[in-house]
């Protein structure tokens, strides 16, 4: 019972923290640019506001437009159930491993792309085409990174991987792990749609990828899609932070240690969010046809990490 409660707690922590992380990134960017920027909690208000609004659908659309937002939202939420925050017992760990996780996330992308097509407008199709291309190019690097970690810890179960990362794996294979994490950074940027790959702020048809698909969404549909994208970003950051900085896994005996673990997790996530935001400010968005180079670079990094591990 206690482990179940722990798992539930971790699950809700990821869900609740996710809009905050995105808000924090926006705030950091605004502050560095010299403007005040919206409040850190603005994404929560956005979601609440959007929930209250009615949905406007195109008369060309079909039931895909109605179910796709739910699936897009529920997929990252399910994946959030896989990830440990401070304890390796998680809610959904019985039902799949890290390879399954990759494919579950792909299911979300699949329906998001279908949503883009459903309105019969040219923007949606454009966004879908770009999103599917970027997602496909990121996939080999992602699987290669996962293979590296799975071989290092001799398991594909996420909890196992996190446990052994917290142990001595990272120090046993420092070269391989470092390179794998560098590759994972590229994958994170691509999957979360951050700046060198995609700009989440603009609505220019030249640059947008993710925004183009959800251009026709409104009301609760848009709220669901936004929840999906927030949670997805948080998932990748959690994956990144809990492998890269294997701190914060404390024993769950007393309420104080748990609180402390959560606090450390929170600090790690915020730091990572700020780092990514500053990284976004220093980089220019890549031209669309150079994304393949970036993804290929990530893949080569993952490849080196694999071969150095194997040596």
């Amino acid at each position: 019972m206690q482990t179940f409660l722990m798992a539930l707690l971790q699950f809700f922590i990821i869900l609740i923290i996710s809009p905050f992380i995105v808000g924090l990134m926006q705030k950091t960017k605004s502050l560095v640019r010299g403007s005040v920027g919206p409040c850190v909690f603005q994404p929560y208000f956005n979601i609440l506001k959007l929930m209250q609004k009615e949905v406007v659908l195109s008369n060309q659309s079909s039931y895909i437009s109605i179910i796709a937002p739910y699936i897009v939202a529920v997929v990252p939420i399910t994946v959030a159930g896989f990830l440990p925050v401070f304890d390796s017992n998680t809610l959904m760990s019985f039902s799949g491993d890290i390879i399954a996780m990759v494919y579950i996330l792909a299911l979300g992308t699949f329906f998001l792309a279908l949503f883009g097509f459903d309105q019969g407008s040219s923007f949606g199709g454009l966004g879908s085409s770009r999103e599917m291309t970027v997602a496909s190019l990121a996939e080999p690097a992602f699987i290669m990174v996962i293979f590296t970690f799975a071989l290092q810890s001799n398991s594909t179960n996420i909890s196992h991987i996190f446990d052994s990362m917290r142990g001595d794996i990272f120090f046993n294979y420092p070269v391989s792990s470092t390179l794998a994490l560098m590759a994972l950074y590229f994958v994170t940027l691509a999957e979360a749609g951050r700046i060198p790959i995609d700009n989440p702020e603009t609505h220019l048809e030249l640059t947008m990828i993710h925004e183009a698909m959800i251009l026709d969404a409104s009301g609760r549909n848009l709220a669901l899609l936004e929840i999906g994208s927030f949670v997805k970003t948080t998932i990748f950051l959690t994956l990144f932070s809990n492998i890269f900085m294997p701190l914060g896994f404390y024993d769950t005996n007393t309420i104080w240690t748990i609180g402390f673990s959560i606090f450390i997790y929170f600090i790690k996530m915020s730091t990572l969010g700020v780092i990514i935001a500053i990284g976004e400010l220093t980089l220019a968005k890549l031209r669309y046809f150079r994304i393949s180079d970036a993804m290929m670079f990530g893949f080569v990094l993952a490849l080196i990490s694999m071969v150095t591990y194997r040596l």
Binding site: Q60, S62, I64, V102, Y103, A106, T109, F110, A113, L114, G116, F117, D118, Q119, G120, G125, S128, S129, M132, T133, A135, S136, L137, E139, P140, F142, I143, M144
Partner: peptide
Amino acid sequence: ALTGAFAAACFVKVIGISFLG
């Protein structure tokens, strides 16, 4: 992995072009 991702892209294309819109 690339194959799987391309297959997904391909069937997004098929469904999106032929059944939606």
